[in-house]
Amino acid sequence: MSLVLCVDGERWRQHLLETVTALPGVVPVAKGNGYGFGIGRLARRCGWLDEQASVTGSRIDMMAVGTYLELHEAAPRFDGDLLVLTPWRPLGAALDVPETLNPRVIHTVSRLADVGDLLGRAPDARFVLEQLTSMRRHGMTRRDLLAAAEVLAESGLSGLAGVAMHLPLNTASHLGEVTRLINDVVATGLPTRTIFVSHLTPVELAGLRTAYPDFTIRPRIGTDLWLGQRAALKVTATVLDVHAIERGETFGYRGRSMPKGGHILVVSGGTAHGIGLEAPTGDQSLRSRAATIARSGMDVAGFVRSPFSIDGKQRLFAEPPHMQASMLFVPSGARVPDVGEDIEVRVRFTATTFDRVDIR
Rank of each mutant, 00 (worst) to 15 (best):
M298K: 15
E344Q: 12
S306R: 00
F317E: 00
M165R: 08
P28Y: 00
G40Q: 04
L316S: 09
R254W: 10
V336N: 05
E177T: 06
P24S: 10
R89P: 04
E73N: 06
S2V: 12
N102D: 14
A93T: 01
L132D: 09
P123K: 07
G32F: 03
Y35E: 05
E204K: 12
V128A: 01
A113V: 04
D79T: 03
T201R: 11
F127I: 01
T350D: 15
A22P: 07
G261F: 08
I60P: 02
P98M: 06
E70K: 01
F78N: 02
V239N: 10
A74D: 02
L208T: 05
R315L: 15
G139V: 08
G36L: 03
G156C: 13
L225V: 00
L5W: 07
V26H: 13
T171R: 13
T179D: 12
G120H: 07
H322A: 14
R121A: 10
L42P: 01
A244Q: 13
V197F: 06
R143H: 13
D8E: 11
S2F: 10
V128S: 02
P331S: 14
G302V: 02
G282A: 02
L316F: 14
V304N: 02
C6R: 15
Y68R: 02
T236N: 00
I182M: 09
